[in-house]
């Protein structure tokens, strides 16, 4: 089994925060946890290459780092890519998740990583890849490695995995067929009875959880603030230049409104299959309130409205997709020095 292992600078033993800026490097053979992986997998398992990258570098140059790493993994013809374990190191988790997701989709080889539940990488990538629950304690390295290698061996041998709880990975949201003795009605009544009696029971449908979002401080001075308008109502220029899908959109667009006092129906169309678009088609200000924002801008009540608005369609979209687009939009707003965003949602 040919393995490539990804590590951050800390777990590779290069250094701490002072080395977080180091670019992607590749070392021959196993380093740190990689040696443990080889031991656990047995004689025919070899870590050919250990990719090491500083946490800051990886996050700040993610696309470039991932592309270079995928290239090296392709060159050595790896059968398996392992990243981490990352425990609760957020930047490490983000990089490991991005790399594993890219390897899986571009090279179609098994990938395994491990993080704690609170790691932002878990939230972002758990639906795409197998992430073992590492907990937060890095002293449990051996236990985590055992779980990771158990999962990796199964993936490489194409043996069906157990349930998330059995094999120690985070739920990916798959639904599996299974023969059961009791009908749904009987199971449901049993659960209700257990709940009423205060006895333990296990729901078959676990709703997705959302971690709390920290509320940033309020905008101090609106008259100096730069505003960005965003909508998920699918408003796009006539012809839909970015081909934003009306359902499960994978893209968003940025459209110029510099010379506009308001939005005119004849210039726009709606790419959104989830609501009756006739009213917004008549007057897009009903979705993106540019006319009123311009009034406020002229009156000096707000600083300025940024020269483009952002748009996508928010319908029947996997969370992994919407989270990615949200992050990209937030990144753009940050780069532009936006002080306040008004997001209108249908």
């Amino acid at each position: 089994m040919r393995i490539v292992h990804y590590l951050n600078q800390f777990f590779a033993g290069v250094g701490g925060e002072e080395s977080a800026g180091m670019p992607l490097d590749s070392l021959k053979g196993a380093v740190g946890p990689g040696r443990l992986f080889e031991q656990l997998l047995g004689d025919d398992a070899k870590v050919l290459l250990t990719l090491v990258c500083g946490d800051n570098y990886a996050v700040e140059n993610q696309e470039e780092m991932v592309a270079a790493a995928v290239q090296r993994i392709r060159e050595v013809k790896a059968d398996l890519v392992i990243a981490g374990p990352c425990f609760q190191a957020g930047r490490y988790g983000m990089a490991a998740g991005a790399l594993c997701a890219a390897v899986q989709s571009q090279l179609s080889i098994p990938v395994v990583t491990a993080m704690s539940e609170e790691n932002p990488g878990t939230d972002l990538y758990r639906e795409m890849i197998y992430i073992v629950d590492s907990g937060t304690n890095a002293a449990k390295m051996r236990d985590v490695a055992v779980m990771m290698m158990n999962l990796a061996q199964k993936l490489v041998d194409k043996i069906p995995l157990g349930l998330p709880k059995e094999d120690g990975y985070f739920r990916r949201g798959f639904i599996r067929d299974r023969f059961v003795e009791q009908t749904a009605g009987q199971r449901l009544v049993d659960m209700v009875m257990a709940k009423v009696k205060g006895e333990p029971f296990e729901s078959e449908m676990v709703p997705t959880t959302f971690s709390p979002v920290r509320m940033p401080p309020g905008v101090k001075d609106l008259s100096q603030a730069k505003f960005l308008l965003i909508t998920d109502g699918g408003l796009v220029p006539k012809g839909n230049p970015d081909k934003i899908q009306g359902s499960a959109a994978t893209r968003w667009g940025s459209y110029n409104i510099e010379a506009c006092d308001n939005l005119k129906g004849e210039d726009y169309e709606i790419s959104h299959g989830g609501y009756d678009p006739q009213f917004v088609r008549q007057d897009p200000d009903r979705l993106v309130p540019l006319d009123v924002m311009r009034e406020l801008e002229r009156a000096g009540a707000i600083g300025e409205v940024y020269e483009e608005f952002l748009s996508t369609s928010g319908l029947a979209n996997p969370l992994s997709n919407t989270r990615r687009m949200g992050r990209e939009m937030a990144e753009k707003a940050k780069q532009l020095g936006i002080d306040a965003v008004i997001l209108t949602s249908t």
Binding site: D276, V280, D283, R286, L287, V288, T344, S345
Partner: peptide
Amino acid sequence: GIVHVVGDA
């Protein structure tokens, strides 16, 4: 309203 979040036809 969903069909006109910041309007009223």
